[in-house]
Amino acid sequence: MPPTTAELVHDRSLGDLLQHRDVVLEGRDAPQRTARVELADMLSADGARADDAMLVASELIANAIQHAGGVVLIRIEVYEFGSALGVVDRASDTGALPTSPSNSSTKLADVAMNGRGLFLVHTLASTWSVKQTKDGKIVVAVLTQAGSR
């Protein structure tokens, strides 16, 4: 199994882990919808951040489907001061993900065909990272609550 996001968030700025759920998405007809349903269940009290988390999860899952041969699972962890989402796929190339995605052009002719998903993740998440695992990689996005440390 890939490392938990708790292991990836070393400084404990999210506080104590309150809930953890691994949701297998491999082989599902609608993996993004499945992830959104689980997120809605776990983050129902977090309002706007729940919407952000659903969008971030959808983008990471879409990237895994389009660029990594499919998604394996989503790890959802809810902490006192935020949440962490980890999307696991079987591709091991962690260098394919830019550390600072950008696609800020507003001219239709200049807009890249790819890159908007990671731009959204980069914009909505407090931080995100990619870590190689035994069988692929996990892309983790952390969303903190407003006013948290």
Results as ranks from 00 to 15, higher is better:
residue 57 A to I: 08
residue 58 S to I: 01
residue 58 S to V: 03
residue 59 E to T: 06
residue 59 E to N: 02
residue 59 E to V: 04
residue 60 L to Q: 04
residue 60 L to F: 05
residue 60 L to M: 13
residue 60 L to T: 08
residue 61 I to M: 04
residue 61 I to L: 00
residue 61 I to D: 04
residue 61 I to E: 02
residue 62 A to Y: 12
residue 62 A to R: 11
residue 62 A to S: 13
residue 63 N to S: 01
residue 63 N to I: 01
residue 63 N to Y: 01
residue 64 A to I: 01
residue 64 A to P: 08
residue 64 A to M: 02
residue 64 A to Y: 03
residue 67 H to D: 04
residue 67 H to Q: 05
residue 68 A to W: 00
residue 68 A to H: 11
residue 68 A to C: 10
residue 69 G to C: 05
residue 69 G to M: 03
residue 70 G to P: 05
residue 70 G to H: 07
residue 70 G to R: 08
residue 70 G to D: 05
residue 71 V to E: 03
residue 71 V to G: 02
residue 72 V to C: 06
residue 72 V to W: 05
residue 72 V to M: 07
residue 73 L to P: 00
residue 73 L to K: 08
residue 73 L to H: 08
residue 73 L to D: 05
residue 74 I to H: 05
residue 74 I to Y: 00
residue 74 I to T: 04
residue 74 I to M: 03
residue 75 R to P: 09
residue 75 R to S: 12
residue 75 R to F: 10
residue 75 R to V: 12
residue 76 I to R: 02
residue 76 I to N: 06
residue 76 I to A: 05
residue 76 I to H: 06
residue 77 E to A: 06
residue 77 E to Q: 08
residue 78 V to N: 10
residue 78 V to I: 15
residue 78 V to F: 12
residue 79 Y to G: 07
residue 79 Y to V: 08
residue 79 Y to N: 09
residue 80 E to V: 14
residue 81 F to G: 15
residue 81 F to V: 15
residue 81 F to N: 15
residue 82 G to P: 14
residue 83 S to G: 13
residue 84 A to W: 10
residue 84 A to Q: 10
residue 84 A to K: 11
residue 85 L to A: 06
residue 85 L to E: 07
residue 86 G to P: 05
residue 86 G to I: 04
residue 86 G to M: 01
residue 87 V to I: 13
residue 88 V to L: 06
residue 89 D to G: 02
residue 89 D to E: 00
residue 89 D to W: 00
residue 90 R to P: 08
residue 90 R to C: 09
residue 91 A to Y: 09
residue 91 A to N: 11
residue 91 A to G: 09
residue 91 A to H: 11
residue 92 S to R: 15
residue 92 S to I: 15
residue 92 S to P: 14
residue 93 D to F: 00
residue 93 D to N: 04
residue 94 T to R: 14
residue 94 T to L: 13
residue 94 T to Y: 09
